[in-house]
Design a binder for these strands. Structure first.
Lengths: 247, 247
DNA sequence: CGCCGGTTTGAGTCCATTCAAGAGGAGTGG
DNA sequence: CCACTCCTCTTGAATGGACTCAAACCGGCG
């Protein structure tokens, strides 16, 4: 278990939900953990595993995905720095989905018992982690609506809006101009389309002047316009409802 | 605030996750609450609201849904007796989706401050509620996969399997023969299809001998067969991973 | 009896898919 | 430096699953 600074992003994240006092902050930073540098496409957890550690993403990008019976894949979340990536799998005992890096990534593994103890000994920290899970849930619901009811262009545009906003919020880029670390195949699996169709939809968004693309980067000329085309309303990210009661 | 017995289903539910000691059990039952009998199609929370109370469903059925920009609707969850229906909305401060009854229902409203206080004063109860939220999230992920990647028949069959199993688990019916309290339009909004297509898919499942239907009831002749057609694996419901560590 | 919400059925259309092939780019090794 | 490979992206053509539009049917209920 290494230098505590690896957990700093976790404190930052939790303090969005609850102003922690010095004791609580120290307790979080004192969590036992093991830092690891992972290559791209590496599995952090596999469906059916009984993981003994949760994991904090401190660098790079990761996804949560499932492989269905017919071999197709569904991506249900994209994660970036500061996200606690594996609470579900490790706390619930048995992983119900896979977690995988998409780029080289640095992660801190935290034993599940340590998380539970922290939550019990410092209930306000537990509450903050619970809030984080609630926001996760909110994002899942929006993805359900996105995939179920929006057409191709709106669906992809919505993903681009969400990703941009979250990147900006995590201070990893500008929401109107950022590097998108996903292949078109991954975008397809995150939106319930085929890679071929993603390609055509991207072209369509570009031709309509809503986005510009270079290598694997996205530029958004007119944020409001794209937001409108995407039927995007950031409320579900709860970026502004932070530290609502605690503190 | 009425007789505490209305909260009994909540204790039952939480004890699936953590064996509570008498003090903790008493604390849950001592939660201030207001019982209300609601008619069908009544909104419990509306998107944008700042609800001051969470709500426990003690009788009847309810859904969570969103109305999109074009007026279409997406249903992201179906709830039955014992489910805590509005933690997300009330704890996060601002509702990001609607909660609505689909049948007449009895609910117990619990002030959000009371929930928070409970979680802080009795951290293990807080942990149990957190677990419940994690399972919610797991179901959302499966729904994403379901809508994104399965075809009509499998998608609907999957919903029928899940609903049956959850009903049985809540002791509200048999998984192979139950009353389905949803209209075909609601089934459509829960699976990302149109009502017309739901109708055809139902007919298809019936003709293939996978289900039988009467008024608004479903019979499943061969559970294993339907499960297979649905690509259904109940692991994501975490019915068997109960009380994993606590207690 | 007649209304009304929900269900069922038909016909035509379209969006997204499948299948297939080619182009671009990065990395490897001769 | 060039050939070779692998992966990703791009494009075309044909197919098909789900949609829209529209009408009819059904059962419960005032």
């Amino acid at each position: 278990m290494t230098m505590p600074s690896a957990l700093a992003p976790l404190v930052t994240k939790l303090e969005l939900w609850a102003q922690l006092d010095p004791t609580e902050r120290a307790a979080v930073l004192a969590l036992p953990h093991r830092v690891e540098q992972l290559e791209a496409h590496r599995y952090i957890a596999r469906e059916g595993d009984q993981p003994r550690a949760s994991c904090l993403l401190t660098e790079g990008f990761a996804i949560r995905q499932k492989i269905l019976g017919d071999g197709s894949r569904s991506i249900s979340a994209i994660h970036m720095r500061g996200d606690v990536v594996d609470l579900q799998n490790s706390l619930l005992g048995k992983a119900d989905h896979n977690v995988q890096t998409v780029t080289p990534a640095k992660v801190a593994f935290i034993p599940r018992e340590a998380i539970q103890t922290l939550a019990v000994d410092h209930p306000r920290v537990g509450l903050a982690m619970w809030y984080d899970t609630l926001v996760d849930g909110s994002i899942f619901r929006e993805w359900i609506a996105n995939i179920a009811r929006r057409d191709g262009p709106a669906r992809l545009a919505h993903l681009l809006c969400e990703f941009g906003l979250r990147l900006e919020y995590a201070e990893l880029g500008s929401r109107t101009d950022y590097h998108l670390p996903l292949t078109q195949e991954q975008l397809a699996d995150a939106t319930g389309m085929t890679p071929v169709h993603i390609n055509r939809v991207l072209k369509d968004l570009e031709q309509r002047g809503l986005i510009t693309r270079s290598v694997r980067s996205v530029g958004i000329a007119d944020w409001d316009l794209l937001q409108k085309a995407a039927d995007f309303n950031s409320a579900y990210l709860h970026l502004k409802d932070r530290a609502p009661l605690l503190g």
